[in-house]
Amino acid sequence: MLATHPLIPYVAVDAVMLEARAASLAKRSIKTTTKRAGIDLAIRCMDLTTLEGRDSEGKVRSLCAKAMTPRPGWPGVPSVAAVCVYPNLVAIAKDALLGSTVKVASVATSFPSGLADLSIKLADTEQAISAGADEIDMVIDRGAFLSGYERKVFDEIVAVKAVCGDRAHLKVILETGELGSYENTRRASDLALEAGADTIKTSTGKVGTNATVPTALVMCEAIRDFARRTGERRGLKVAGGVKTTKQALTYLVIVNETLGPQWLDPDLFRIGASTLLDDLLMQLEKLDTGNYAGVDYIPKD
């Protein structure tokens, strides 16, 4: 088996100017009306997430309630895009979200390591979709990627995509914190996009380094080049460590200035986060009233 994928051209990436460009975009000053639009957008693009070993039915139902109505009693605060849970909690989330616009996303393919046999990964995916998942967040086999078995990574994505078919939207988690370089992130992005990922996603949230601004930038560049080559728009999801409004706005700027405003849409951009929503709500209230609310005015899920 040929290890590297022969048909996907290699793209060089250099850290120095990539990081410089990312830093300059992170310095955009987002104020007043734009800040409000950005907060609204960040909520609409959010995958409200709980991925813990102790997740229970009660926790998931609480999260779903917040996903649908992040700030009860405050008109004009939109619902989030999706709730993201483990496969065996999909049915509960589906039930809790019934009748709402909020989608159910499920991690699958032996999340977070991806180190299981392909048959198990496919079964995992099938189970989540059967239970009602609208979206699948799969992980790539980083071990295979780093040892040069790009075909294995590529073929597994193709296989999972085949299971998803028209039934579920496929997000492919690259786990960039384990890939070791921006160049590898770019390579993995290109593989995933060519293999049929609807969205490429930075991280599981389970390793030391999650989404970073330069990582999001290099993934946007891959998506932009893919669109230029094929005419197809694919999405980006940043996940892990996005806790503040300022960070969320920075990612919106990155997408806005690299992919264009047409990507600022929940179909093409997502932020996976658990606590970010609370900060967005707090900043929203600050814009409305001029004051920060105490943390206990924001409902905990």
Partner: peptide, 14 residues
């Protein structure tokens, strides 16, 4: 031609 092209564009702009 083998340059890291996105960064080269940033370098040209800068």
């Amino acid at each position: 031609a083998d340059a890291p092209m996105d960064q080269a564009i940033e370098g040209i702009v800068n």
